[in-house]
């Protein structure tokens, strides 16, 4: 049994199909990337898994149980935590308050002090800025905060939507290094990225989405060597 299984998922915005017959499996302990162009359905996929959107057809199973009819907060309580595109931190709340809210679910709340210490050691910058309003942070720091906040929930599966978006190359490298560290600490990672090269290099396996359909599946290395991927996504 895979940790997370999407089977034959159809999702649409009104009459506009966003995902068509998408099936995908995330194995426990792996880092999996989903790459594709803007509008290929990557974000829609994550939003469906976390309960922000309802599928027209198909199922989402986590640890064998269906989660596609659960409200968002129940999905989080099960250990599936989504770092959304654009970070969605709470700008006027302090960095520390943002992190505390990450451990809002009851089970996570009991470990708040531990988790906070872990996040601060992963992102020392956040400790320095703990009392500052999140809205005053730089883009890179806000991304760290969004990831840190998600870790406060003690996820089994961490889903990241475009963590590199809009960040300077140096910061992007730092973020990817952190994602790798989180994965090595035992968290399963589902990464959605347009930064195809770095995402696939980091991942054990990858999926390529085009127009809401899965067109390629393979190991990270296979996909990086694939002619179509090279031409369409790596500019080679």
């Amino acid at each position: 049994m895979s940790l997370l299984e999407l089977s034959n998922l159809d999702v649409a915005y009104g009459d506009l199909p966003a995902l068509s017959d998408v099936s995908l499996a995330v194995e426990a302990g792996e880092t999996l990337s989903v790459v594709g162009a803007n509008g290929s359905g990557k974000t829609t996929m994550l939003r469906t898994i976390s309960g922000l959107l309802r599928p027209r057809r198909g199922e989402v199973r986590f640890e064998g149980e269906r989660i596609d009819r659960l409200p968002c907060h129940r999905v989080v309580e099960r250990g599936v935590v989504h770092v959304p595109e654009g970070r969605k931190v709470f700008p006027s709340l302090a960095v520390r308050e943002n992190l505390e809210l990450g451990s809002y679910p009851r089970a996570a709340r009991a470990h708040r002090a531990d988790s906070l210490e872990r996040v601060f050691s992963l992102f020392p910058r956040l400790r320095e800025r703990a009392g500052q309003a999140a809205g005053t942070l730089s883009g890179g720091e806000q991304q760290m905060l969004a990831i840190g906040r998600a870790l406060m929930a003690r996820p089994t599966l961490l889903m990241l939507d475009e963590p590199s978006l809009g960040l300077a190359p140096l910061i992007v490298t730092e973020i990817f290094r952190t994602i790798d560290a989180i994965h090595r600490a035992g968290v399963t990672v589902l990464l959605v990225e347009q930064n195809t090269r770095q995402a696939l290099a980091l991942s054990r396996r990858g999926y390529v989405l085009e127009n809401g359909r899965v067109v390629l599946v393979g190991t990270g290395a296979e996909l990086l060597g694939n002619e179509h991927v090279k031409r369409a996504y790596l500019g080679m």
Binding site: V76, E77, P84, L101
Partner: peptide
């Protein structure tokens, strides 16, 4: 401030 962010933090 951020309804979607709140939902994704497990807030009912």
């Amino acid at each position: 401030e951020e309804p979607e962010g709140a939902m994704l933090m497990g807030i009912d």
